[in-house]
Simulated assay, not measured.
Amino acid sequence: MYAKTLHKVIWVVAVVASLGLLAPPLFFVAAKKRVVSMAVPVIYAVIIYGSAMAATVLGNPKNWEGGVLTITMIVAAVHAAILDTDWKPGR
C-alpha cells in the first residue's frame, strides 16, 4: 500500500491529527488499489460522519460523540498502520 515507510507515518499521523476525519479518504485510496474492500471506507465514513451528524441532530448531552470518534480514530490509525506493506502496483 505504501511506497515508503515515511508515507505510512504521514498517513497514520494525518488520521490521528484529523481525529479520524481523514480515515475514509485513506481507505478509499487503499480500496482503489485493491488492498481492502470498498466497504471499508464506507463503514468508516458512516461511523465518523454519521456520528457527528447524529450528535448535531440528537444532541450530545453526555459527550457520546467524543467517545465514538476517539475509538474510531484509534481503530483507524491502527488499521492504517497495519495495511499491507508488501503491496505492489498491479497486484
Rank of each mutant, 00 (worst) to 15 (best):
A45T: 00
V68I: 15
S51K: 07
T70E: 02
S18P: 05
H7F: 10
L19P: 00
F28K: 14
A39Q: 04
L21S: 06
A52R: 12
L21W: 02
W64D: 01
L19Q: 04
V9L: 10
V15W: 08
P41T: 07
A76I: 00
A77T: 10
A54P: 07
P89M: 12
L6S: 12
A81M: 09
L58D: 08
K62D: 13
M53F: 13
L6D: 11
V40K: 00
V36G: 02
A39E: 04
L22F: 08
A39S: 12
I71P: 00
K8A: 10
L6F: 14
L69H: 15
V78N: 00
V13K: 09
R91I: 10
I43L: 15
M1L: 05
K88H: 05
K33T: 03
I48A: 04
A31G: 06
V29Y: 08
K8Y: 01
F27W: 08
M53H: 03
L83F: 10
G66C: 01
K33I: 06
I47V: 13
H7W: 12
L6E: 09
P89V: 09
W11Y: 12
K62W: 15
P41H: 01
V57N: 03
Y2M: 01
V36I: 14
M38V: 10
E65M: 12
I43V: 15
V42H: 02
K62Y: 13
R91Q: 14
A76Y: 02
G67T: 04
